[in-house]
């Protein structure tokens, strides 16, 4: 018994000694993390308490502590309002349009860039196509509105020269606006988006192409039967991750491109939240929309990550 006790105290003494040693060597690492954790606490975890506003009739003067709790009232009115379903529909529609029209673009671009053997041409092309990614949405939106303007825009100038005076009011047409929305995404991101596929293509074993060539495959057939199958995993991962953010539409992009004439199709969850919440002070209602959006987003992201891991053995975390 005394031996056992002795062993126990010795063990705990070792343990305290280990900890004392560990902390003596590593306390500075924890010190470094103090401002970091403070940042995450103040600017990510503290705002979570604001989620309570969704379940209150929040009044600015009373704050979260003083405002009255109303349960799921705001969610009930939300799900019964046609406006909510309209912005939800717009958000998903614009995302699906982006998915169908934009998603394949960087893949095609990467494959084509990979075909180019002239190093200088390739480098110049890449430099020019990556560049718009670093422009702000204000600049790109401004540029789009500018060149598409019916009065002075260069696009309509060319169009009217070709058709003998016909012009199109692109940004005010509910048919053309979504197309211009996707084109602006493409303009900003297609080059940048191709980098990850180019990296995947570069990683393909050259012997596979060699074997295909010996079998008589031309370049086009090599793309179909070697390149595409080899990068399919990357495509699947990125596609799934894309699906995981189907409720997110770039807010700045919409703010730059929208106008009164196309409001019925351009108004999305985030712009609506901003307008109603910040400009019209309907904090509780818009927080409820935010809760809805964040919950769906979280489920979709966890699901996307799970599917990605199941299918390819790799996820984002």
């Amino acid at each position: 018994m005394s031996v056992a006790m002795h062993r126990k105290t010795r063990k705990s003494r070792y343990r305290t000694k280990f900890w004392r040693n560990y902390l003596a060597n590593n306390y500075q690492l924890y010190l470094m993390l103090v401002p970091v954790l403070l940042y995450y606490f103040l600017f990510h975890y503290l705002p979570y308490s604001g989620l309570l506003m969704a379940f209150q009739d929040y009044k600015l003067g009373l704050g979260i502590e003083g405002s009255e709790f109303v349960g799921l009232k705001h969610f009930h009115t939300l799900f019964r309002s046609s406006e909510f379903w309209k912005i939800l529909k717009n958000t998903i529609a614009l995302n699906l349009l982006n998915l169908v029209l934009y998603f394949p673009a960087p893949i095609i671009l990467a494959i084509l860039l990979n075909e180019i053997r002239n190093v200088v041409f390739k480098r110049v092309a890449q430099s020019l196509m990556y560049l718009p990614y670093f422009f702000s949405w204000v600049v790109i939106g401004g540029m789009f509105v500018d060149i598409l303007s019916p009065g002075t825009g260069v696009v309509n100038k060319i169009l009217s020269a070709l058709t003998g005076g016909k012009t199109i009011f692109f940004m005010a047409s509910t048919f053309w606006w979504p197309i211009m929305f996707v084109l602006s995404t493409m303009y900003k991101e297609v080059g940048w988006g191709s980098i990850i596929y180019l990296a995947a293509i570069t990683g393909i074993d050259a012997e596979l192409y060699e074997a295909a060539r010996i079998d008589g495959a031309n370049r086009w057939q090599q793309i179909l039967h070697v390149t595409l199958p080899c990068i399919s995993q990357t495509i699947v991962i990125l596609l799934i991750l894309r699906m995981g953010s189907v409720l997110n539409v770039g807010m700045e992009q919409i703010l730059m491109l929208e106008n009164a004439a196309v409001k019925s199709i351009s108004d999305v969850i985030s712009t609506y939240t901003y307008r109603m919440g910040i400009q019209q002070l309907q904090y509780s209602k818009t927080t409820a929309i935010g809760v809805f959006q964040s919950l769906i987003n979280m489920v979709l992201m966890l699901l996307a990550n799970h599917i990605s891991k199941r299918l390819t053995g790799d996820g984002i975390w």
């Binding site: 600017f43 705002p47 604001g50 989620l51 904090y283 935010g290 964040s294 987003n297 979280m298 992201m301």
Partner: peptide, 13 residues
């Protein structure tokens, strides 16, 4: 990264 509190709670914060 997975769960975003939303524009309004961040603004109030």
């Amino acid at each position: 990264m997975i769960f975003y509190a939303g524009i309004i709670p961040h603004y109030i914060n």
